Computed example of a mutant assay.
Amino acid sequence: MIEKMPSSEERTQLFTDLMDGKIPKRVPVVAQLTHEFAIQYAGGDLQEDQWDTTNLEASFEKVCEDFYSDLLPVSAFRLPSFYKLLGSKNFVMGSNGFLQHPDVEGLKLEDYDDFIASPYNCILEKVLPNLHSALNSDPVTRSLVMAKAFKAYTDETSNLFRIYGNLINKSNYGTVNFYAGFCEAPFDILSDQLRGFKNISLDVRRIPDKVEAAVNAVTPLMIKMGNQPFPDKYNATFIPLHMAPYLRDKDFERLYWPSFKKLVEGLAEKGMRSFLFVEQDWMRYVDYLAELPAGTLMTFEHGDPKIVKEKLGNKHIISGFYPLSLLKTGTKEQCIDKAKELIEIMAPGGGYYFSFDKVIITLNSVNVDNAKAVLDYVANNASY
């Protein structure tokens, strides 16, 4: 572990300096572990502990004790209770205890015009009943189902926030929040939840005008969705980026980028910073990312860190690039050497914090001793 455990104030200062464009005392460390990993790591039962979230606190606490991070390292993004009540087709619990996201069609091809005219009304009236079988019913039944699901959601969320608060206070984590809001890029919401990967791939080629109109129509709704309850320049709205690497350049330029840029700029105009998970390989589009509002947080999954540092490092805050696969297959020395390599590239001049290239979801996806060794090494040795 780290030689001297810092206070919450010291840890918070690392991130406020980072986001103020100053060089922090050392490189901040952010470990990102899911509730599924925490349950497995603590020896719990995935089939049980996701349904009774009172059991999560002990699992989360075990992770906090064993994995160094300057921010709370573990969280639960999706829990199954309210999806089960809704009869969801877009998030379904698998036999292995993990929520699966099948390729779904929430928006029918013939409903594009209704969606373009009023995305919100179309989602309420057509998309939600298509995605959730329990809502495809008469108004009374639908209302009761929605009330039960919302009650389950608020109960789960309230319990999670209680757990997070307890752990932040107990372990003296920094108090900035990179997940103070959540939304998706307009093209991604159309792809992920409305048309599905297969359908949107066809739509881009067959009806690009309607796709363009749809992403433009839903952009204000995504800006509203991304609003933080208490906007703060040291918090952020999380936006995972999905479809861009699968698009041709001309389709990205027309159908993805303009509405996405408008989303990030719209949040910034309201005083809200964005935190992007730059999924897959965005190297074709690095120059576009340079156009986003200064101080945007970006975690990169793949790509060339030298090029990203050169083109984005003076304007944005970068993390990621460290491959989870190495934690699984490499020796402890190899894993630490990779951390050294990335820090030498990314840290000079500031604008960088250390994290892996993605969250850790399953216990068998990494060698936990390697993960702990890397986090401890960076916390003890990484400076700018």
Rank of each mutant, 00 (worst) to 15 (best):
M225V: 06
V278H: 00
S59P: 01
A244G: 04
F300L: 06
K309G: 06
R195W: 08
K250C: 11
G350F: 06
P102I: 03
P293R: 04
L124M: 15
G21T: 06
V92R: 00
D287I: 08
S201L: 07
G43M: 02
F37G: 00
N166H: 14
D304A: 10
A152I: 05
F354S: 10
A38Q: 02
P231H: 09
D369Q: 07
H35M: 07
L18F: 06
K233P: 13
D66P: 08
D369F: 02
E212H: 12
G271D: 04
K170P: 08
L312V: 08
L375W: 06
G330H: 03
S274M: 03
A31R: 07
L276D: 09
P305F: 08
A294W: 00
V366L: 00
T53D: 04
S75P: 00
A217I: 07
K328V: 04
I239D: 10
T154A: 12
D138P: 02
A42D: 01
D114V: 03
L342Q: 05
Y384F: 09
A339N: 08
K261D: 06
S88Y: 00
E10N: 10
K22H: 12
T329H: 11
I23K: 14
F252S: 14
C335E: 06
N367Q: 03
L72V: 01
D70C: 05
M222Y: 10
S69R: 04
I23F: 04
G351W: 05
D287H: 12
V63N: 02
A180C: 03
L221T: 13
L160Y: 11
I200H: 07
L128Y: 09
Q100M: 12
N367E: 04
L135R: 07
A294F: 00
I200S: 09
D66G: 07
M243F: 14
S95K: 14
P323D: 04
Y173C: 06
L202H: 07
T12E: 13
L289H: 10
E10H: 09
S137D: 15
T154I: 11
T237Q: 13
P348Y: 08
K372R: 03
R195T: 10
Q32W: 11
L221G: 03
K372H: 01
L131M: 09
G271P: 05
F252C: 12
Y246L: 15
N169A: 15
I189P: 02
D114L: 13
L190N: 05
Q40Y: 00
I360T: 02
L289G: 11
T16D: 11
G106I: 06
V218A: 12
D287N: 15
V368N: 05
N227D: 15
S69C: 08
A180S: 04
P129H: 09
L324K: 14
K250N: 15
H242E: 13
V278N: 06
L375Y: 15
Q47W: 01
T16K: 15
Q100L: 10
N96D: 02
C335W: 01
S171R: 15
T329N: 12
